[in-house]
């Protein structure tokens, strides 16, 4: 009757339009570039689709696409090593994040209700400062003449400066620092919602605080932990700034490889292929994992 309800009916479509325009379309463009070959031109790849050439020109365009870049990725051990190294660094960092973040989230959820918003604010506060500046600060801390070495030497715990900066350890420190809020916040949100009487019921049945944590608190917060871990793991696989600033020349990560292909070698097609590879190795396992979770949830019903 009035036009307004019809507009409202369009509302659910909006997120899909958004995703289509700003996610799906760019991915498709990247996929197309990854199937092209590099050229000294503007843009620096061939073929370029010219709509005016008609169906015959479009067929030519399709014929010119091939998987040569993916063959390069498969045959050159650099890319395989970078992928494996990215995955293992991200996995180790995720594990460290879980070990560091879970007690933090747990303590936050158990803090007095009045204090909790303050603690959440404290977790978010670092975001007020630029990510780049915060990672630069870590250089100042980790460098041989930096805060950490000086402090440890002053305490007499080490007798010469630590060689941390430029190693994988520095990358792990940087990743853990940078992504901690992304693990803590979802985990805290789930833990804070849990009925405190469930812990009381467990204690009433003779469970020590340790057993309550492992058998009730943590299993009930599982979804928060998984969400937080994925939220950290996915961007960490493709992380560029942390390995570039804190890692050494031997720190091989896909994000860095992609960067150098794109900016140093100006090989857009190969860089696009690396980007697609990154997407596949990160999104693939998640889709499988989600499927398994859903099926398990349904089976329990």
């Amino acid at each position: 009757m009035t036009p307004r309800p019809r507009l409202l009916r369009l509302l659910p479509v909006l997120p899909f339009l958004w995703l289509g325009a700003f996610f799906l379309l760019p991915v498709l463009i990247t996929l197309k570039i990854s199937l092209s070959e590099p050229a000294t031109a503007q843009p620096p790849y061939l073929p370029v689709l010219d709509w005016s050439t008609g169906p015959q020109g479009w067929a030519h365009f399709l014929e010119a696409l091939d998987f040569a870049n993916y063959e390069t990725l498969a045959n050159d051990s650099l890319y395989r090593d970078a992928a494996l190294s990215s995955l293992s660094l991200a996995a180790v960092a995720t594990l460290i994040l879980a070990l560091v973040g879970t007690p933090i989230a747990h303590a936050m959820a158990r803090a007095p209700a009045k204090v909790q918003p303050v603690l959440v604010a404290l977790v978010i506060v670092p975001f007020w400062t630029s990510f780049l500046i915060r990672i630069y600060a870590w250089i100042a801390i980790l460098k041989p003449e930096g805060l950490l070495s000086a402090g440890l030497m002053r305490l007499g715990l080490v007798d010469r400066p630590l060689e941390i900066l430029g190693t994988q350890a520095a990358v792990l420190v940087g990743l853990t620092y940078a992504y901690l809020p992304f693990l803590v916040l979802p985990l805290y949100a789930v833990m804070a919602k849990a009925d405190p009487r469930l812990r009381e019921a467990a204690a009433d049945l003779g469970a020590s605080p340790t057993r309550v944590f492992w058998t009730v608190t943590l299993p009930l917060a599982r979804h928060g932990l998984v969400a937080g871990a994925l939220l950290c793991f996915i961007p960490m696989v493709g992380e560029f700034i942390v390995p570039d600033l804190l890692g050494g020349s031997d720190t091989l990560m896909l994000g860095r490889v992609l960067w150098s292909e794109f900016f140093s070698n100006r090989d857009w097609p190969l860089a696009s292929a690396v980007a697609i590879l990154l997407l596949v190795i990160v999104v693939g396992p998640i889709v499988v994992f989600r499927e398994a979770e859903t099926r398990r949830g349904e089976a329990a019903r």
Partner: peptide, 11 residues
Amino acid sequence: PAHRRPVNMMF
């Protein structure tokens, strides 16, 4: 503490 008391509760 609660977990050492020989009483139980039905919530």
